[in-house]
Design a binder for these strands. Structure first.
Lengths: 351, 351
DNA sequence: ATGTTACCTGACATCGTTGTCAGGCGCAGT
DNA sequence: ACTGCGCCTGACAACGATGTCAGGTAACAT
């Protein structure tokens, strides 16, 4: 009876995976020396190093990171988890890209996943990432409280929240100045003399949606407008319902002269309604979130643009710092939004 | 002198990570029984199972997947690698989403990364994924030949290529009918009576770009047009250069009456040029790739639409089948493109 | 009572790597 | 010649899990 079999498959079988043992044998050194070479540790003579490297090339050897991190003291897996609203959405995908670039440069791989604003998904994905022992997490929180999501023993896992601030847990966050951006949209429309507004917003249980509405309404009130009378629609979750609502507004007895849409998809629906009814040059529109081709429409669409690339970049850098041991108190970073004037927001109220 | 220390941190320290040993001790069973429960293996009495589950809940225990896959016979890490041109590009990000959905449902996590049409990046990312022992790979190949990318011992790693077919290696592929789509665009324009064309394309070293040009030119030749005289621009890599080229064409002595742009970004540049010069209702345009808001422009933009979601879905299903042991000969799956008529492609040639 | 079978259960080796530690060698200082 | 130090080097245990295997118990047939 044989004691060990694993090395038997070495010479014949073309698709066995070489291990450190195989490299060590071929180079005629101890296994630990191979480890030292692979990890660029000191105290290996140049001659030995060369011999080992030659053997790794010959066998096409590659370190098994999982096995390594099991024993290594820092237990780093060189991977992080990224939880976004939806990787297919342009806002998310730009964040994704910015984050990827920074981590790739450091040899850290990124697990990305979409949440679809579903708290159950959030929980199961966090569990999945924790089970893979990621070194950190960047996420857009959904659940009302994240405390129960993160087991006690993972509270010190580096984490950065994006787009929305964490609740029930202490962590860095990177967000857009939602209220301020929406406030600026209101001010912009008020300056053109508008008095009859309509507001179409996202799911109201999402933090950012509330902030945008608050910002918008605050400014209207400051101008003496009774916001109780402003037609307000929350929970507009898809383009088609936004379109229907906008059509209703446009065709009503007293249509608004200015519409604010608080999110990308909502804006698309409103645009369709305006175009269909031919009112695109009569009713003003400002949308939250920039989008491709906004400048090519007739008229160009005035928006409050966020800077997803910047958000992603800052979040990635914060997470890296935390992973590297930064212990400063957690903080929220605010990325200012930007008003981009293109035409639709400068239409004056009809006489 | 103590023999083992690891369990010492158990009671006091709040952020140690419980291991199977801890759970086993708490439940008063052997470590292997915990393993059986965690993996839903049979041959555990209901009473014991309950006791173990209670202990896992008490300690908030979570299986370490990496450690498990090290010893497990199938060695599955429950993760795959996904290499896309650019996760921020809408075409890529929709593929990303479709793939993610299918793998998440199976508990498999997805590492995603962007290649930027850079062969060096391709090589280093593949190495990174291989080092993490992914169970499979979905990728958009860049290098002229993938054979050297994949070490011999990983040739049997399940792999599916998307958008472009593999070279130097046998594997499934899922692609758009690029030539046929471009051919259809040509036929569509020819049917409107056009005879003066211009062609703007992507980097010509990319497989899909060549196929599109071939398809387009083949159809023109069939109609008796001397394609040697058709102004043809390859290597148009960004919107601005596309715009410049289009401006040059529009302002030339004999401007084309119909333009075909073989890729998204190129189309955007051409659109800008047409709008600036006010020729958007005079010169016909068909673009490859659909995009958001294409129906909202004036005129709507006629395109050959690809179906990225469908491509992603098929690729994911093929990879899953391979991971599950499907051994059938590899095959290329073709996802038909679709001509979407919106106005810009139906403009007749100027008299 | 005994043998057979089916079901539970845990000790132990092991996956591929890194941390610890002790040993060997060469060279400078005395 | 001897000690001390610095540099290389490999044996061995261990990371947290799973596979193997043997032992133990209860139930049933003989």
């Amino acid at each position: 009876m044989l004691t060990t079999v694993s090395n038997e498959m070495q010479p014949k079988n073309p698709n066995y995976r070489p291990t450190m043992r195989n490299v060590a044998d071929l180079a005629g050194v101890g296994i630990k020396t191979v480890s030292r070479v692979m990890n660029n540790e000191p105290n290996v003579s140049e001659a030995t190093r060369e011999r080992v490297l030659k053997a790794t090339r010959q066998l096409n050897y590659q370190l098994d990171m999982a096995a390594g991190s099991l024993k290594r003291t820092d237990r780093k897996t060189m991977s992080i988890g990224l939880l976004l609203p939806n990787v297919a959405n342009p806002f998310s995908s730009e964040i994704n890209r910015a984050i990827e670039d920074i981590f790739n440069a450091r040899g850290i791989a990124v697990f990305a996943a979409s949440l679809d604003d579903d708290a159950a998904r959030e929980a199961s994905l966090i569990t999945a990432f924790l089970g893979r022992r990621v070194d950190g997490l960047i996420l857009t929180p959904i659940a009302a409280n994240q405390a129960y999501l993160i087991p006690e023993h993972s509270r010190d896992l580096p984490m950065v929240f994006i787009d929305r601030e964490p609740r029930g847990i202490e962590a860095d966050a990177v967000v857009t100045d939602n209220a301020e951006g929406a406030r600026r949209a209101a001010a912009h429309l008020l300056a053109r003399g508008h008095t009859r507004f309509a507001y179409l917003g996202d799911r109201f249980d999402i933090q950012t949606a509330q902030q945008r509405q608050n910002g918008f309404f605050t400014e209207l009130e400051k101008a003496g407008i009774d916001t109780g009378l402003v037609p307000t629609f929350n929970g507009v979750i898809d383009e088609e319902s936004a379109r229907q609502i906008a059509l209703g507004l446009i065709n009503s007895a007293e249509p608004p002269t200015a519409i604010f849409s608080a999110q990308n998809i909502v804006t698309f629906g409103v645009l369709h309604a305006l175009k269909e009814t031919g009112k695109n040059h009569e009713i003003a529109l400002v949308g939250f979130d920039d989008f491709l081709m906004a400048d090519m429409l007739e008229p160009g669409v005035t928006v409050i643009a966020q800077h997803p690339g910047e958000i992603g970049r800052i979040a990635a850098e914060r997470l890296l710092a935390r992973i590297d041991g930064d212990e400063q108190p957690s903080k929220t970073y605010i990325v200012p939004s930007e008003l981009i004037v293109r035409g639709s927001g400068e239409i004056p109220p009809a006489a």
